[in-house]
Design a protein around this nucleic acid. Structure first.
Lengths: 141, 141
DNA sequence: CAACAACTATTGACGACAACAATTGTTTCA
DNA sequence: TGAAACAATTGTTGTCGTCAATAGTTGTTG
């Protein structure tokens, strides 16, 4: 009979939980959650995004995006701007404060992952990251 | 600025979510959830376990174990027996029906993980599993 | 150009899930 | 014997993910 940790899928599930908890603990003092942070980081990679694009790219429900952007606006990290060519849409952009926040927390954020991956050497972390990335990208299709 | 998937910890978080969803979809018809299944599989590796042992080994809160064992008892897959030397404790054991259920679903369960790891070759899956296992076990200490 | 279908953001409801605190009954030990 | 520790349980809280419904806007088509 197979043991508990014999299954890679289950291992992923458990480690995913742990990773999320670590991130949330790190973000606690800033008042943000992991999902806010992911949204911020995504905003930093582009000029601005419609909320439905955020929903599609981050994999969060559109209704979840509403609350997340609300929170980020309250903190001054992001802004909603009207879309020039479609009055239904809003364009969400990172503010200077948001950019500064990312800069300030970037190093600490990296350390969270380093803590998690502590038992692995540098080359092994590279390998792990590459493998996970392949799986993640395959699922987006 | 680092992209969204540049962080291994975040990748783990997202893939863990996806893995859990896949498992739960597979278990849907049986009326169980991922955590029930994990508990059943753990029970199959030993003769019987106190609930606090289940809690410690699976990493679930003791209060969570209560509900899980309740459900499994209702389905006839597990049983609570009084501990002979401590009337506070209950020993949870797998029933024949539980064992049969595991036998019947074992193959399908494996396929869930195979679906998830579809983009990887056999050797790569081995590597991934070994790396994840190291991380998981380091965290139990 | 008027009616209709599709889309965007939003709100609200619901169940699932995980983490904590508090309670009851039992055991251990000083 | 009394106090502390422990096992299982109940209840509570907050987050998460999904779904349904709505208002406002756009695009299409008859």
């Amino acid at each position: 009979m197979r043991g508990l940790h014999a299954d890679t899928g289950y291992l992923l599930y458990r480690l995913g939980l742990r990773s999320g908890q670590l991130f949330n603990a790190f973000l606690q003092e800033s008042g943000l959650r992991l999902r806010h942070y992911a949204l911020l980081r995504f905003l930093a990679t582009i000029e601005g995004a419609l909320q439905r694009e955020l929903s599609a790219r981050l994999g969060y429900d559109p209704s979840a995006i509403v609350g997340l952007v609300d929170d980020l606006e309250k903190l001054g990290f992001a802004e909603r701007r009207p879309s020039p060519d479609d009055r239904r849409s809003r364009i969400v952009v990172l503010t200077d404060e948001g950019r500064a926040f990312l800069r300030d927390t970037d190093e600490t954020g990296l350390r969270v992952t380093q803590d998690l991956l502590e038992p692995l050497g540098p080359a092994e972390r590279e390998t792990l990251h590459a493998l996970l990335l392949r799986i993640a990208e395959a699922g987006l299709a």
